[in-house]
Design a binder for these strands. Structure first.
Lengths: 334, 334
DNA sequence: TACGTTTCCGAAAACCTTTAAGTCCAACGG
DNA sequence: CCGTTGGACTTAAAGGTTTTCGGAAACGTA
């Protein structure tokens, strides 16, 4: 550990110039003779000079730092969004101050204060589900962008996955493979994500003039529920040649149970999951065709939009981000 | 968005006192009459005054901010460590600057510069595996603590899970249940984690005077490998009544294949995993007994140690953190 | 030589806060 | 009435950097 850090004043003395000249030389500005600039640069190098970002920020009013407020780091969905954002910010020479409120509104307020006190240039709020969440942006001195979980205030800027479109993608894929009787097993009905995906399924079927195979089965986001639903449907359910599952966990349970009941996937039964959670979707037998909400891209886009909002203007409202279909072996032509 | 933020000078004018008095009133210091303090506090409230952390940091030389440098956010192990650290820092009113180097040394250097330029008070480096990694702490003006992946310089401070001890825990559990012939299926031999766990197994067996059932099977950290190993062992392998798997993924594949081959877990065969990756370990049939490296605690401990290092002295060297055994249904008395 | 122009550099203010040192005044003891 | 004490407040400096503006030297032109 070095004792004291060099300041620009040390650099200036060593180079035999004034502070002002040193500053200009280091920042590549005009009005410095080439030879002088060289001397300053050499001095800075020798002293391992690093400009003090605090002083710089104090003067300029810009910290080149953004706050990232997440309500739930534990969850699986926040991380990819965070990674995408970190990626975009890193490329823009921005630093990210990370705060996890753990779903606690008090802690969120506390973190918000801390971030503002540190004079962040902007804020990204990452929700824990796609359900709208309370806005924090009332009377804030910096721009805010919501990612994954939208703000409940339509005047804010939010980026969310287009779950209706994602479900439509899945259904259109199944229809193109010749499947006609599609069942739906999904998570709890009080999740926006579950309702949106069911809605997408319904819309796609309706526009193809087909009925859904049985009612939508609402349950939990677990493998266990997927197995249970499979047993129910396959022993006493309606006829169906495909099932659209609301998550990869459900789909993994479903294919496992179907397999044990002697149904061949995809021959007898095509299965589509949701989330493209690789560790699960790629390890089931057969590997799952699934909808990928592309959360990393969502995070990156949100970050880029925050840049725009910081030095210019933002387009408010909820932006729906398209999903991708990842085709693996759990679906095939009949 | 407000136009301009109130400074302490605005608060002072509004309260009709000098800046110094305002500062003292706001910071709860002596030499301020109670009534004056009230006036200042009211003024601060009215203007929504937030002290500028930059100015404060510039003066005090402390930013109450630490850098968290991770080589691999994508991986499963960095996140819990990060959460633990974030937890400890949040409690200490510290903020966390997050940087992900994505395993790239250049990017790591770049982030390091950025963090130092922002005058962080300390640094936590989170590795992507338990293998030693190059030290970054040579001639750094701030203390550094390594978490999960230790530094290759013994003079640094590192916190790593005690994989040897974790494996011992698992084996002792199996022995206590009356199992005597224990096989071992694990990941690649070029992972320190795999070697440590195999070593723990060997030591525990040796001190019980028992031989290992067959050679250690080295493979990958995947479910697929677990299945494959199970098929090999159960069709043409040695006699065994328990298997210690190097990861929950391997164990999940193993129990699945064993089940399909008609072996009952835990009756015929006890299975222990490693990592306590809940989504997997709790969803297999039966749920997995597994070793929990308690990474969140590891992160928290590392953070607390960084505090100590920041304002005092640190005890260098590699600190091994004990693991916990989580007992579920995949193990039982014979 | 006198004067205007260009080139390069330095002095000083500004950003916001904390704190050491100094000022003022009332109360109090003698 | 004077000196002392101590409470309540203010002044000013410090922290590191950027930037504006003014100044000096060198050079060209009349």
């Amino acid at each position: 550990m070095a004792v004291r850090r060099a300041t620009i004043s040390d650099v200036a003395s060593l180079a035999g110039v004034s502070i002002a000249t040193a500053s200009k030389a280091l920042n590549g500005r005009q009005d410095v003779r080439a030879s002088t600039r060289q001397r300053v640069l050499a001095a800075a190098e020798e002293l391992a000079f690093q400009p003090n970002a605090l002083a710089r920020g104090l003067l300029s009013g810009q910290t080149r730092t953004v706050g990232l407020l997440t309500s739930d780091l534990e969850g699986r969905f926040g991380i990819p969004v965070l990674m995408g954002a970190e990626d975009a910010f890193g490329a823009g020479e921005m630093a990210v101050l990370l705060c996890d409120a753990r779903g606690d509104a008090i802690r969120e307020q506390h973190h918000l204060r801390a971030l503002l006190s540190r004079r962040v240039d902007g804020l990204i709020v990452v929700g824990e589900s796609t359900d709208p969440r309370p806005s924090v942006s009332k009377d804030l001195p910096v721009p805010v962008v919501y990612a994954y979980g939208p703000s409940d205030d339509p005047a804010d800027v939010s980026f969310v996955p287009d779950d209706v479109g994602g479900a439509t993608l899945a259904v259109q894929h199944l229809l193109a493979l010749g499947r006609r009787r599609i069942a739906h097993v999904t998570g709890p009905a009080d999740y926006r994500a579950a309702r949106d995906r069911a809605e997408g399924l319904g819309a796609a079927l309706a526009s193809a003039g087909l009925p859904q195979a049985g009612e939508t089965l609402w349950g939990t986001w677990s493998q266990r529920w997927g197995r249970h639903a499979a047993e129910m449907l396959l022993t006493a359910g309606p006829e169906f040649d495909a099932v659209f599952c609301g998550s990869d966990q459900i789909a993994a349970g479903f294919v496992e149970a179907a397999r044990e009941l002697g149904r061949r996937v995809p021959d007898d039964l095509a299965v589509v999951g949701y989330d493209n959670w690789e560790v699960l979707a790629a390890e089931t037998r057969p590997p799952l065709t699934t909808v990928d909400p592309d959360l990393e891209r969502l995070g990156r886009t949100a970050a880029q939009h925050l840049f725009a909002a910081i030095d210019g203007k933002a387009t408010p409202g909820v932006h729906k981000m398209a999903c991708r279909l990842v085709i693996r072996d759990s679906t095939a032509r009949m």
